[in-house]
Design a protein around this nucleic acid. Structure first.
Length: 124
DNA sequence: ATAATGACTGGGG
DNA sequence: ACCCCAGCCATTA
């Protein structure tokens, strides 16, 4: 299967803290493909059943859910995120400045774990 | 190896 | 603010 790329995507997504969301482009950048946001989406689209990944925490750069295979709300993705403490705007958007993984994750992680060795480099 | 596809993104109208 | 178009990358047929 050689899903090295996919596996890496899953690895990163699995490390997104609950109550926090990441964008496809952000993950793509971690993979070394700043413009490969679509590839990340494809990876989650092909997400195997035997691998549990909080794909719900991965949204587009516009802070809007882009499951694409159905309704944004019908999917239940919104409900799952809200259950994690994420608040949606009136238009069904998420404030990336607040719930975005970057910016807070590293500082918070370091405070809780004392080190960010296990966290990928997300600065800036 | 070539062509088409897709859960994206950014810029322009 | 919303809608449309073109660019980018890996996987699949």
């Amino acid at each position: 299967m050689s899903q090295t790329l996919f596996d890496k995507v899953y690895w990163i997504v699995q490390r997104i803290p609950a109550g926090r969301v990441a964008t496809y482009g952000q993950i793509a950048r971690l993979l070394g493909i700043p413009r490969g946001a679509r590839t990340v989406g494809w990876a989650l689209h092909s997400l195997p059943d035997d691998v549990e990944v909080p794909w719900q925490r991965v949204i587009n750069a516009q802070g809007h859910v882009s499951t694409g295979w159905g309704g944004d709300e019908s999917t239940g993705q919104r409900a799952l995120l809200e259950a994690e403490g994420i608040v949606f705007g009136q238009d069904g958007r998420v404030d990336l400045k607040v719930y975005g993984w970057a910016g807070l994750e590293l500082a918070e992680w370091q405070q809780l774990h004392g080190t960010g060795a296990d966290v990928p480099h997300l600065s800036a």
